[in-house]
């Protein structure tokens, strides 16, 4: 495969200087053209096919454990913080951009969505009463079965509490215990553009 890709690169209309980076077995960034050369289209299809295969294999692998152990549920990870920080801080408008981007990415990859925003999660007080005391109210949780992505979001947001949700069913994990409050614009808005319209988060709620 690597050999084929390299050959194809060389013979293609746009010769990519990056073909020599063989150790990273990934598609190399290609020159941009308004009209894609034929070889690029062929290669794009090839990559798409191999990716679908990968996704199918991943799905198969995911199915096996659930078949072997009946009642096995996905493990979720959560980041918990107060609503004002998560939704109202101008800093975190980038979260809206990231979530939109991730949804677009999942669609392109034919992957199911694996994250939600859960206002006032029921499990916080019920299962983690000590941790619940550290969180100002009203609060919100960003949850996902992709723990690596949650680690990344922790790095981005920093001022959030990370909680791994073990031995909980999907229903329990997604149980909403309250609503995101309506925010009044407070403080000094310094930007040369208007705020994002409140409610951008509704599409990410579990019962949407």
């Amino acid at each position: 495969m690597a050999q084929t890709m390299r050959t194809q690169c060389t013979s293609g209309t746009a010769v990519s200087r990056k073909a020599a980076v063989a150790s990273i077995n990934r598609t190399v960034a290609r020159p941009f053209t308004a009209q894609r050369p034929a070889s690029a289209v062929v290669r794009a299809n090839e990559v798409a096919i191999s990716r679908k295969t990968f996704v199918a294999r991943a799905a198969a692998a995911a199915e096996t454990p659930s078949a072997q152990q009946s009642g096995q549920t996905k493990e979720w990870a959560a980041l918990v913080c107060n609503c004002d920080f998560f939704f109202n801080d101008p800093q975190n408008e980038s979260v809206a951009e990231q979530l939109r981007e991730r949804v677009r990415f999942f669609k392109e990859q034919n992957r199911e969505n694996d994250f939600y925003i859960v206002p006032e999660p029921v499990w916080l007080d019920k299962k983690f009463p000590e941790l619940a005391k550290q969180v100002k109210r009203p609060c919100v949780a960003l949850i996902s079965t992709d723990k690596t992505w949650i680690t990344f979001m922790k790095l981005r947001l920093d001022r959030v509490l990370r909680i791994d949700l073990k031995d909980m069913s999907d229903t329990e994990v997604l149980a909403v215990g309250g609503e995101v409050p309506e925010f009044k614009p407070v403080g000094n808005w310094t930007a040369p553009y208007a705020r994002y319209t409140p409610g951008w988060w509704n599409v990410f709620l579990p019962n949407h």
């Binding site: 990934r26 981007e101 991730r102 990415f105 392109e108 992505w149 680690t151 990344f152 790095l155």
Partner: peptide
């Protein structure tokens, strides 16, 4: 955290984005 970043970059969200 470094591995979490690596996964994000491997995803290559903008692979097909910069097309004129």
């Amino acid at each position: 955290e470094l591995n979490a970043c690596l996964q994000e970059f491997r995803n290559d969200y903008n692979k097909c984005h910069f097309v004129r």
